[in-house]
């Protein structure tokens, strides 16, 4: 049984059946990619996993516990972290402050009334944030306002923020969308490195086949709201159904 189990999930928006009957099992400590053409329901599926949408039918369980009906912060506290398509960071705060917030959330839970002691006096959290920044090569930028950083650095920081909470499942929504080639390759290397160094499961939604085939161990192809095939990258590459979904039916 996988760390994340999606069973019979369906979601309808008015007349549009965005997700039909999705079954998906993400094995622990694997990199699982979900690909599919535009409108296949990738983002809808992701939103069902992190509590932004509640599916009409089916169940989603993480480590045996249902995530349905839970709010995003509860799901995060369960151990699922999400990286957004456009990096979502605190643009008015500096890099260090950005890093401190998830560290506090990890230590204190969803709410804590720490209104008297200063941020700088919390040595253990400071050390943890600093360690994480060093691991991610962001330490020398720690006083920089994040709004002025490059796209690649923002992405790196966002991933660092997610990792500082020691999630067991990292969800990435098109992590290289809109990136230059060099930044894309950096992100791939970063994710590979994370995979090697940590016990972590990564689920990734991606358009860029280069990214998918350099990272994924399993691939699920989604088309029109239902999973078409699930297989290893090698088998997916030549799969006739996949070609059909991406390129249209053959003429004969």
């Amino acid at each position: 049984m996988g760390i994340l189990e999606v069973k019979g999930v369906g979601k309808r928006f008015g007349g549009l059946q965005a997700l039909g009957d999705v079954n998906l099992s993400v094995a622990e400590n694997s990199v699982h990619a979900i690909i599919g053409p535009n409108g296949a329901g990738k983002s809808t599926l992701l939103n069902c996993l992190i509590g932004k949408l509640i599916p009409d039918t089916g169940s989603v369980t993480f480590e045996g516990q249902s995530v349905l009906g839970r709010t995003p912060y509860e799901i995060c506290q369960m151990g699922i972290s999400r990286v957004f398509q456009t990096p979502e960071i605190f643009t008015d705060l500096n890099v260090m402050e950005n890093m401190l917030i998830p560290c506090f959330a990890k230590r204190d839970g969803a709410f804590a009334m720490n209104a008297i002691g200063s941020v700088t006096s919390q040595a253990e959290v400071q050390d943890k944030a600093m360690q994480m920044l060093e691991d991610m090569n962001l330490a020398d930028k720690r006083h920089m306002l994040t709004g002025s950083m490059s796209r690649g650095d923002k992405r790196r920081l966002e991933i660092a923020m997610c990792l500082s909470q020691d999630p067991r499942l990292l969800l990435l929504d098109e992590p290289t969308a809109g990136m230059a080639r060099a930044d894309t390759n950096n992100t791939i290397d970063l994710l590979k490195q994370i995979k090697e160094e940590r016990d972590i499961t990564i689920a990734i939604i991606e358009h860029d086949m280069h990214v998918v085939f350099s990272l994924a161990e399993r691939i699920t192809v989604l088309a029109q709201g239902t999973p078409l095939v699930e297989d290893t990258p090698e088998n997916i590459k030549g799969h006739p159904k996949v070609r059909e979904a991406y390129l249209g039916e053959s003429v004969d």
Partner: peptide
């Protein structure tokens, strides 16, 4: 304080704060 930091984070990006496990 950390509490003040969270409040500034609310001003900056409430969505990220929710997905960082904070209510």
């Amino acid at each position: 304080s950390p509490f003040g930091l969270m409040l500034r984070a609310i001003k900056s990006n409430q969505q990220r704060l929710n997905y960082t496990g904070l209510n």
